[in-house]
Structures are given as structure tokens and as C-alpha cells.
């Protein structure tokens, strides 16, 4: 019985990041990189994975060592840890996926200052156990990644006529606007609206029951 309870707790922490506290759609943090790189699906997946890796590693390390991190200097220590993992991702990506690394440009190094990571380590993993932190990081990472993928799918399809890199929409039906930044804002705004509506419905159901 106790085991199912802990399992349930972990699952709810994980699910938290997917929708109810989705970093992009609900908390609306870490937006600039997500809007900038989502012009095609490869970038979306790459950015999402890089971000998830840094999130998981930073949260694990910080929750494991949180007794050894004095309160007064926790922020600089967080930054050192996050920056190290970001640099590792950056180096590995440059070595094994140079094309992807070039497409992401400055946004990989900028993961360091992404508010999602800073926010989660400060508000969650600094106070919780390692296991809880792992599920939180995975939830947030997956939540970030799926939104990124969805935005890139829509923008790549409408703006570039491609679906997973395969050209399917002829040029005269393409709307170049979606490849530009205003298109990113539009798609993102609509997604927020949909997510809020879905969330409200879930909440209503929960209250009714």
C-alpha cells in the first residue's frame, strides 16, 4: 500500500510538469530560447533533450548536496553547477552533432540562464529528496520538450511546408510568416489558450467529483 502511494506521489510530481505546471504554457518561463529555436522539429527535439539533461543533472546534484550548500551562497553554487552541465552539453553537441549545434547557435550556452532550471532548483530540488527531484526534472523536461516539439511541428509545417523534414506542402500554400518570430508568438499564444482551457476543464471535473 505504501509503495503504491509513493509511486502515486512520484507520478503526480511528473505529471505536474507535463500540464498543470508546464514551464512554458502555465508558468511561462524560459520563453526566449523556446520561441527562437522552434523553426523545425530537429531543433525542437535537440533543444528539449539538451534542456532535460541539464535539468535532471542539476536537480539531482543539487538535491543530493543540498546539505553541503550554505544558504548564503546557494545561487552562485547553482550557477556553477548549471553552467558546468550546460558546457558539457554544448561540447558534446559540437563534437557529435555539429549541424544541430550550429542551428541552435547561442541558445545552448544560454541554457545557463534559463529561468526554468534556476526556478526548479531553487523552488524544488533544494528542498526535496533526490528521487522527487528526478521526477520533477523529468516532468519539467518532458513538459518543455513536448511543447517545443508541437510549436516546431506547426511552424515547420505552415512556414516551410515540411513535416519531420519531408516536404509535403507545396510552396504556394506555405505561410512564411510562421517561420519568423511573429509566427512563433502567434502559435505559442494559441497553444497557451488551448492549454488553459484544457486545464480549466480538468479542474472543474476535479471539483465536481
Amino acid at each position: 500500500m505504501r509503495e503504491t502511494n509513493t509511486m502515486k506521489k512520484y507520478l503526480s510530481i511528473f505529471a505536474n510538469g507535463i500540464l498543470t505546471e508546464n514551464p512554458l504554457l502555465m508558468l511561462m518561463i524560459g520563453l526566449c530560447s523556446s520561441l527562437a529555436v522552434t523553426t523545425n522539429i530537429a531543433n525542437g527535439v535537440g533543444m528539449g533533450l539538451a534542456m532535460t539533461f541539464v535539468l535532471v543533472m542539476s536537480e539531482v546534484i543539487i538535491s543530493a548536496f543540498h546539505r553541503l550548500i550554505p544558504d548564503a551562497i546557494r545561487i552562485p553554487v547553482f550557477i556553477i553547477i548549471i553552467a558546468s552541465f550546460t558546457t558539457i552539453v554544448d561540447l558534446v553537441m559540437k563534437a557529435y552533432a555539429p549541424a544541430l549545434s550550429r542551428a541552435m547557435g547561442v541558445f545552448i550556452p544560454l541554457i545557463v540562464v534559463n529561468c526554468i532550471i534556476m526556478g526548479r532548483v531553487e523552488s524544488f530540488s533544494y528542498k526535496r529528496t533526490v528521487a522527487e527531484s528526478v521526477f520533477d526534472a523529468l516532468g519539467m523536461g518532458v513538459g518543455y520538450t513536448w511543447v517545443l516539439c508541437l510549436i516546431s511541428l506547426i511552424r515547420e509545417f505552415l512556414g516551410d511546408g515540411r513535416f519531420f523534414g519531408h516536404a509535403i506542402l507545396p510552396e504556394r500554400f506555405q505561410v512564411k510568416f510562421f517561420s519568423q518570430s511573429p509566427g512563433g508568438f502567434l502559435v505559442f499564444g494559441l497553444l497557451i489558450a488551448v492549454a488553459l482551457a484544457v486545464n480549466a476543464r480538468i479542474a472543474k471535473k476535479g471539483a465536481a467529483r
Binding site: 553541503l68 550548500i69 550554505p70 551562497i73 552562485p76 553554487v77 556553477i80 553547477i81 553552467a83 558546468s84 558546457t87 558539457i88 561540447l91 558534446v92 559540437k94 563534437a95 557529435y96 555539429p98
Partner: peptide
């Protein structure tokens, strides 16, 4: 304490860098 964290981070990064530099 801060210096200790920085040193550990640097050693880790130096290690990763040595591994990836030839590939890069």
C-alpha cells in the same frame, strides 16, 4: 566552499573537454 565547487566543476569540464576536443 564556493571555490571548492568551482574547482570540482573545472576538473569535470576539463575531463569532458579532453574527451570531445579531437572530435570537435
Amino acid at each position: 566552499i564556493l571555490a571548492a565547487y568551482a574547482v570540482v566543476a573545472c576538473v569535470g569540464l576539463a575531463f569532458v573537454y579532453t574527451l570531445t576536443a579531437p572530435r570537435i
